[in-house]
């Protein structure tokens, strides 16, 4: 794919910024617009942009693993976050658990946050798997 120098250079700087932004969206989701779905999509778009500028191979090298592995990881995190109250406190599946004191930046940490992180990972994994698979064989 032929790309301009500007896009190539810009995407190298944009990737970390966009990723940081996606994490920001993920974390603030509980209080303000955002969340795992949108955050995941933004992160996926960041990688796709990078792959457009530098080629799929470079992006894959950067990722170090197939994005498909993110899917089971995310699913497991989400599922376990629901399982924790069952295992530790004998509460129903997916009961929300919360820390008593607010943590810096994040505010209250709860099991819902981990659930959202799982969603984030699944969305990144699914989107990248689909796009990469298609552009590989296209």
């Amino acid at each position: 794919m032929r790309t301009t120098i500007i896009l190539k250079t810009a995407s190298n700087y944009l990737l970390p910024v966009l990723l940081l932004f996606s994490v920001f969206i993920l974390l603030r989701g509980h209080y303000l617009p955002g969340g795992g779905f949108v955050g995941g999509l933004v992160a996926a778009i960041a990688f796709i942009l990078h792959s457009f500028a530098n080629g799929l191979k470079k992006t894959k090298e950067l990722l170090m693993m197939h994005p498909g592995y993110l899917i089971p990881t995310g699913l497991a995190i989400s599922f376990l976050s629901g399982l924790v109250p069952v295992a530790l406190f004998d509460l129903p599946f997916m009961t929300g658990l919360w820390s008593h004191d607010p943590v810096a930046i994040l505010g209250n940490i709860g099991s819902a946050l981990f659930f959202d992180i799982g969603v984030y990972l699944v969305v990144v994994g699914v989107t990248l798997t689909i796009i990469f698979t298609i552009s590989e064989s296209a």
Binding site: G29, H30, Y31, L32, P33, G34, G35, G36, F37, G74, L75, S78, F79, G82, F93, M94, G96, W98, N108, G110, A112, F115, D116, G118, V119, V122, V123, V126
Partner: peptide
């Protein structure tokens, strides 16, 4: 403990639905 109601529905109130969705 959340203020964005849409997100709270997704990850907490109807969390199982979201789990199935992903």
């Amino acid at each position: 403990h959340g203020k964005n109601v849409v997100n709270v529905i997704l990850v907490d109130f109807r969390g199982v639905d979201t789990l199935i969705e992903i």
